[in-house]
Design a protein around this nucleic acid. Sequence first.
RNA 1: CGGGGUGUAGCUCAGCCUGGUAGAGCGCUACUUUCGGGAGGUAGAAGUCGGAGGUUCGAAUCCUCUCACCCCGACCA
Length: 565
Amino acid sequence: MRLSKFHLATVKEVPADAEIASHRLMLRAGMLRKHAAGLYTWSPLGFKVLKKVEAVVREEMDRAGALELAMPTIQPRELWDETGRWQKFGGQLLKIKDRKEAEYCYGPTAEEVITDFARSELKSYKQLPVNFYQITPKFRDEIRPRFGVMRAREFLMKDAYSFHVDEASLGREYDNMYATYARIFTRLGLAFRAVAADTGAIGGSRSHEFQVLADSGEDAIAFSDASDYAANVELASALAPGPRAAAREAMREVPTPGKATCADVAALLGIDIRRTVKSVCVVGENGFVLALVRGDHDVNEVKLQKIPGLAEYRLANEQEIIAALGAKPGYLGPVGADRKKVRVIADREVAAMADFVVGANKADFHIAGVNWGRDLPEPDAVADIRKAIEGDLSPDGKGRLKIARGIEVGHVFALGTKYSEAMGATVLDTDGKNRPMQMGCYGIGVSRIVAAAIEQNHDDAGIVWPEPMAPWRMAVCVINPKNDAKINEAASALYGELNAAGIETCLDDRGLRPGAMFADIELIGIPHRVVVSERGLAASTFEYRGRRDAESRNLTREELFARLG
RNA sequence: CGGGGUGUAGCUCAGCCUGGUAGAGCGCUACUUUCGGGAGGUAGAAGUCGGAGGUUCGAAUCCUCUCACCCCGACCA
C-alpha cells in the first residue's frame, strides 16, 4: 500500500477522557471513530488490524476442525423464551421490535440460535461430534461502556458451539479448544494465562478464561508461584484453614469510640487485624444474612451468590441493619444476634478462629475474646466466601498465590445439557434412544484482542504491534521524494521487492517532513522501517530500524531481506 | 439506577462566576521560504455556542425542561 493512497488519519490530540493507553493510542493512530457510547467505526487502518486477528482465529479454528457458519445478528424472542434467558439475561440484552410489534434481540451470544439450528440439523450420534463457529458482531447493552473497544457495546466476537453424544466427547473437544486458544494467543504474540473461571450467566460445569496480562486489566487473577494453579479471583480459593484453636481468652466488651473499621479497631487494641472479624449484611431470598470474613479479607460476591438462598442477594440498607442487629455498620457482630431473624454465614477462616474481635451491636463498642460454641452458637453455615489475596496458600498445597491483572480475551465453557434440554435438542444414540446433546461453547473477543495487544505492547511513541497483527510488517520511508526522482524510484523498487518477497510493506510516499513521517510510522506501530534517502543511495545501503530498536543501522539489501526472513 | 461532571470551529479547549452579539492552538485551503525527528511566514475558509422554552432592551453566559456524552458506584463475556 502506498500511504499517499491510504486514509491514514493520525491525530495529535485526543479527548481527555480516553483513559487507558490502548484507547488513547487507537484514537491517536486513527484506528477508531466513535459515534455513540460503545459504538465505533473501525477506520481502514484499524480494520486491517482487526482482520489480521480474525484471520489467525479463523485459521486455528479451521485447523482444529471447527466449521464456520453465520447466524443472524437479530434473534427472535421465542428462542430466548425457551431457555428463560429473555428474562434472565437482564438489561444487557438489547430488545427490539419489528413493524409487526414482534420482539427480537440483537444477539449478545448465540446459544439459542445454534441450538435451534442443531436440533433441526443433528439427528444421529453419527453426525457428532461437531463444532460450529462464526465471527460476527455482537451487541451487549453494557451498563457502562468504556475504554474504547475494550468494553464496547457492539464488538466482534468469535463464538463456537460444539455438540456431543456424551460427556467424554465434550471433554475431548473442550481440551481441543483449550489447546487451540493457547495456540491462537501464542501466535498473536500475546503474554496470556489460562485461568479457571466462574461460569456466570452462560451456565455450565467447567470453564476457563484466557487472560492477556496487563496492569490495566479489569479482571484480577490468582496464580500459584509454585504450581500451575490459576483462577479468576472470583473463583480462586485459598487452602482451607487448619482446625480451630482452643479458647484462651474470656469474652469482654471493649470501648472502641469512632473506630468503625477492622483496621482501626486492630490498631486501637494493638492486635493483628487477622484476629478481627468483618460483618457484612445482605438480604437474600429468606431474609437477613450476616456474612463474616476475617478483618483483612473481603467478601467475594460470586462465591456468596452460590450459597443457597443468596443467588440474588443484595446489600442490606441501614434501616434493615438496625432492625436486625440494633446498631449501625461499623459495630456489627454475630454475638447476641437473634438467630431466628439473622442467619450467620461464616467464611471458613472465620469459623476456624478463636479469641477473635467482633462488633458489639452497640455504637462505639466491640467484643474481644469471642469463641464459637462458648460465646455464641456455631455459624448457620460455613463456606469459602472470601476473595483470595496475595500470599494465601495455593489450594493445591503447592506454593502461595500471587495476584495479577488481566484482560479476558477468551472463554471456554463445558455447558453440558443446559441448552439442549431446555430446547429439546436431542439425537439418537447407539441404543436408539433420544438423548440431549452435550454442548460446549467457546468465545474469543476479537476486537478486544486488538486493544489488549496495545495495552501489552506500547511505548511513549505509540503502538508496538506484535508482527502477526501489524497492519504492515514493514514501512519504506522516502525522504524528499520530490527533489530526486532516483530516490523515488529506489524506494518504489524496494517496496515492490519486499511485497513480492511476501513481506507486507507500505510505502510512505506522502512527502511529509521526516519528523512527521517517522512519528506517524512509530505511532501506528509498524514493526520494521527502512529509510530511503540520498545518503543511503550513495552508499548503496538501507537505513533500517526495528520498532523496538534505539538506533538505526545501515544494511545492505541482502542483510535487510535476511533480517526479515 | 444513585452521585458528580461536560456539551462552544473538523480536533483539543478557553470564554460562562460578573449578560453587550465568539476566541486560541492543532488541523484544513492557497502562496511562499524550508526539507533527516511532529518547520516558519502571509492570506483564507470554517461555529443556528447540544435542543426547546423562559427572564431581559440584549443570552454561549441567568432560570426551567430535555437530549447526548463522560467520571465514580452498583453490575458484567
